[in-house]
Amino acid sequence: MTTTDSSATPQTPKGKRRIGDVVFANTASGSGILILAILAGVAAFLIIQSVDSLGANTANFFTTTGWDANTREAPAFGVAALAFGTVLAAAIALLIATPIAVGIALFIAYYAPRKLASVLGYIVDLLAAIPSVVYGLWGIGYLVHQLTPFYQWLSTSFGWIPLFAGPVSSTGRTMMSAGIVLAVMILPIITAISRDVFLQVPQAHREAALSLGATRWEMIRMAVLPFGRAGIIGGAMLGLGRALGETMAVAMILSPALVISPHLLQSGNQTIAAHIALQYPEATGYGVSALIAAGLVLFAITLVVNMGARYIVARRKEFTE
């Protein structure tokens, strides 16, 4: 089946262009340009609306942890704690999700029977379709209660590592819980992209490995993983982008505090996205503008991560074709 790009097909010769063609082509390209305009608009409006509060801010926006913005008199706020929390939550999620996602992708691509594999791909998609607010509800209404005894054990056994230091939060509404729920939420995207690149590994390379007397694992290590490495990295970065921007799970689960704390099993820390969701309804004075400034930081971070991820995945594609 040919699935070629048809943009190369001859157009009606110049001078004889039909009115229908002109209108249709312009509407189509206009839509594309509109998308670029929307994206530019997102950046522009966020910048315009944040200038106000950033100008009035009496503290350093990037190094301050506090958030005293709901006032018209000398607001003092910063994203230091929020940025730290955002990166921390995403890092936990990524550390948990990436190895598991690669495992699932390998399972779907090379271990599961063919018929089961397509069902599994479908289940992974389903996992991705569940709304984040439902994950949040499940996290706060069910999971945290299940996790608390585990945290107790973790803290008594490994409390000497600052990450797991006690006293453990009795509610379970901690960074660790938020990270775990985020991990579940980004599993599908990392799995889907890894699975796609694994399936792209040419059969010739896999057979080459097998014909040398490789076991299944050796075949994967020899032919699949080197080939799929960029895809896994790209997928993980897309997952990272999603984890950085995810709002609801964190807003519902974490018991926040604007501090920079490495203790994952205690309450505290906060992410940019969750902070915005929680603060917005009560924002007054410079509050809204300050939140928009925080959103701008989040936008910039995710933009960089996503562009990096797309670049890696796209380069991989060129390399394989």
């Binding site: 040419p202 010739a204 390379h205 057979e207 080459a208 490995a209 014909s211 040398l212 020899m222 032919a223 080197p226 080939f227």
Partner: peptide
């Protein structure tokens, strides 16, 4: 051992 139709060195 086996040699295939298309040369398939590990890229």
């Amino acid at each position: 051992g086996m040699v295939f139709q298309r040369p398939n060195p590990f890229p």
